[in-house]
Amino acid sequence: MKKIRVMLLLTMLTVIGGCNDTVSTKADKDNQRVKKVVVGTGTQFPNICFIDKNGKLTGYDVEVVRAIDKLLPEYEFEFKTMEFSNLLLSLETKKIDMIAHNMAVNEERKKKFLFNDETYNYSPLYITVNKHTNDIASIHDLDGKKVIVGATSNAAVFLEKYNKQNGKKIEIIYAGQGADDANTQLKTGRADATLATPFAVDFNNKAIDAQQKVVGDIIINSKVYFLFNKEETDLQAKTDQAIRKLKADGTLKKLSKQWLGDDYSVEN
């Protein structure tokens, strides 16, 4: 009888131990299925990715990524902020897995990186000048003028190509920080123009009295995408699925109106 009791006890311990192993293994597998995605973004792009008055990282691109995160439980998205000029190098060296910073397609980027297929924003760039400037109304009026843009930005790529094809008549200068940023240089007259979106101009005028205005027609109406490392095809596909859902349920439209003042999730 005593031998039977011992046998039953050993059997029960084995079963309990087996159950614990099963639970532990399941938990480990669940943890393994959640993949961290480090998203590179900035803090200086009004209404796109910036630090608000409460010190919170927010803006349209940031909130779209957060909405995507909710739809993709297999991924955990984590933001890493940096200067715009460092984003592409950080992606290339795999310090980040993805860029969310109003990125448009160009050939140089396509050679090295992977764009998703589903655009989540249209970013119309206009010539932007000091509100007191009256002699600039089109790109042809930029001949002999200083135009400030962010290095490696889509505006910079466009102007560099335009300059090359049109006798290099525009003096392109690249924005820095503090007194060398585009807002300060436009306001003080050190630069004559930049390329910017209406929502960025509105934000700058309200937030820092930038004294800017847009003039003329749209120079570039860029489709905006996320940017990934070449091997991140699964993440790219899942991101596209999430964007399509966010379009269908009206989330993108709502976020665009909230942060950009209009529905830029569709082409205007």
Results as ranks from 00 to 15, higher is better:
Lys2Met: 13
Leu10His: 03
Met12Ser: 12
Met12Asp: 01
Thr14Ala: 13
Val15Arg: 00
Gly18Met: 07
Cys19Arg: 09
Cys19Phe: 14
Thr22Gln: 13
Val23Leu: 15
Lys35Leu: 07
Gly40Met: 02
Gly40Trp: 02
Gly40Arg: 05
Thr41Gln: 00
Gly42Leu: 06
Cys49Val: 00
Lys53Arg: 10
Lys53Tyr: 04
Gly55Tyr: 04
Leu57Asp: 05
Asp61Trp: 11
Asp61Gly: 15
Val62Asp: 11
Val62His: 10
Val64Asn: 14
Arg66Tyr: 15
Arg66Glu: 15
Ile68Ala: 14
Pro73Glu: 11
Glu76Ser: 15
Phe77Val: 13
Phe79Ser: 11
Leu89Gln: 12
Ser90Gly: 02
Thr93Glu: 06
Thr93Gln: 09
Lys94Met: 01
Lys95Tyr: 05
Ala100Phe: 01
Arg109Ser: 03
Glu118Lys: 06
Glu118Met: 01
Tyr120Leu: 08
Tyr122Ile: 07
Pro124Val: 08
Tyr126Ser: 07
Ile127Gly: 06
Thr128Val: 07
Thr128Arg: 03
Val129Ser: 05
Val129Thr: 10
Val129Gln: 06
Asn130Met: 02
Asn134Lys: 14
Ile148Arg: 00
Val157Lys: 09
Lys161Asn: 15
Ile170Gln: 13
Ile170Lys: 13
Glu171Asp: 15
Ile173Pro: 10
Ile173Leu: 12
Gly176Arg: 06
Gly176Leu: 08
Gly178Ser: 12
Ala182Leu: 07
Asn183Gln: 11
Thr184Gln: 12
Thr188Glu: 09
Thr188Tyr: 09
Gly189Thr: 06
Ala191Ser: 15
Ala191His: 08
Asp192Met: 08
Asp192Gln: 10
Asp192Cys: 09
Phe203Tyr: 15
Ile208Gln: 13
Lys213Cys: 08
Asp217Ala: 10
Ile218Cys: 02
Ile219Gly: 08
Ile220Val: 14
Asn221Cys: 05
Lys223Trp: 01
Tyr225Ala: 00
Tyr225Gly: 00
Phe228Ile: 03
Glu231Lys: 14
Glu232Phe: 11
Glu232Thr: 07
Leu235Gly: 02
Ala237Trp: 01
Ala237Cys: 04
Lys238Asn: 09
Asp240Gln: 04
Gln241Tyr: 05
Ala242Glu: 06
Ala242Asp: 05
Arg244Ser: 14
Lys245Asn: 09
Asp249Ile: 05
Thr251Met: 05
Thr251Ile: 04
Ser256Glu: 00
Trp259Tyr: 15
Leu260Ile: 03
Asn268Gly: 14
